[in-house]
Design a binder for these strands. Sequence first.
DNA 1: CGTGCCCTTGAGTACAATCAACGTTCGTGG
DNA 2: CCACGAACGTTGATTGTACTCAAGGGCACG
Lengths: 239, 239
Amino acid sequence: MLDAHLKKLRARDDISAAEEQAIRAGVREVIKVPADGLVVRANQPLEVCTILLSGIAARQKDMPDGKRQITEIHVPGDFTDLHSFTLKRLDHDVVALSACSFAVLPHKYLEQITETQPHLTRVYWFGTNMDAAIHREWVVSLGTRSALARMAHLFCELHIRLGIVDLTRGDSFDLPITQQELAEMIGITPVHANRTLQELRKNGWLEFAGALATIKDLEALKRAAEFDPAYLYLERGRR
Amino acid sequence: MLDAHLKKLRARDDISAAEEQAIRAGVREVIKVPADGLVVRANQPLEVCTILLSGIAARQKDMPDGKRQITEIHVPGDFTDLHSFTLKRLDHDVVALSACSFAVLPHKYLEQITETQPHLTRVYWFGTNMDAAIHREWVVSLGTRSALARMAHLFCELHIRLGIVDLTRGDSFDLPITQQELAEMIGITPVHANRTLQELRKNGWLEFAGALATIKDLEALKRAAEFDPAYLYLERGRR
DNA sequence: CGTGCCCTTGAGTACAATCAACGTTCGTGG
DNA sequence: CCACGAACGTTGATTGTACTCAAGGGCACG
């Protein structure tokens, strides 16, 4: 059940059998959320955190004028709201973009981990810092890259993040989200997202249709995106 | 020396005298960095963290084509690179935008804190999560807001963050940075930043000249920015 | 067999970028 | 003290990327 989560952790650090046991013991329940379902509402007091087990989820912020910005996309294995443990509430919603299932861990249990398991605490702290690193890269994308480069960059990121948890098949991966949602991630309109995807396809770099993404030319895609995976901290090390 | 830092911490949580002592005891040295000086270089192995004591600093990512994006601005009291404690290297530079001084704390010392002071650990974890929350709000700004709204939003944020550490005088505050640097934060060209500031001034909302910012109409500025301070977690609570 | 969601296309528009030049301020050295 | 240069700020003219509005097509699902 937590296989993807442990794969993600172990891609960056050593997790002992005892630590794995401590994580597994924290799961209180597993919940299912339908596509477009709300998992966490912004600014509500929270007492649990959730690990995405299957499906695609996202963090989003709604604007008064109805626009919304997705600030991060989540793949299986991700703690979608570990930061709520110290923040107590979130400044954004967590939503299921496709049908999702989540493991639920109480803040109380995580607090216990911080009292008794300093290494595991640092591993999870590292996890939230990686989320922040992803946010920074998205700031760079939105601030400096063209729509085409932003779209290419997003697919490069997903290719790696899904690869870590073995959810890629060669250069293909399932991505059950809409063009509208892609647009909300990279800050363009759905119309422009459509044209951007057409251009990526026309260039022979990427196909995206029917919830399936296929990278046709990874090197070209990376070049167009100015993609440097350093921000994903793929190297292993002891925290 | 750490007054601003403790003010920032105590705005959100209780810090005991013993915890304050533990923080103070961690400072190994104080370093001075001139304007435009590099404090931390991206991707270099790190063994210390730095607290900004005076001046304005920033996190920035350089692009291959020479453009740069500032991903966060730092005010006195901020840990500019606490996330390096678990990340071991950073995906971005830290630079001094004006002449700055920093307190330096070794990772080893912070590790000791995680082994012996769970509450203080959570307080600092919370701190890095607040940085991530600021990143998210910048993602929203860059993804959905106009240049005018982004600029207004930035000044609203700075007004609050500087106010927490008592560096505002009424609705004025020192901000020794250039229009070019403002432009690099909100993802526009220096030319457009100049015109945007002119429009803010013309509207009677904000003046910015000679490193001094003066908010003339805070409510109008907030309205233009769609500013909601929830992401700054201004409420106090026990972590 | 509709109905609604998602994707696609076209035409006109606007915000911000680019390019180029000029003004201002301030520090430095002659 | 003044000439000079560099950095910062300002303005104008033009270009282009992405937005808006509008309409139509494909497909799944009830």
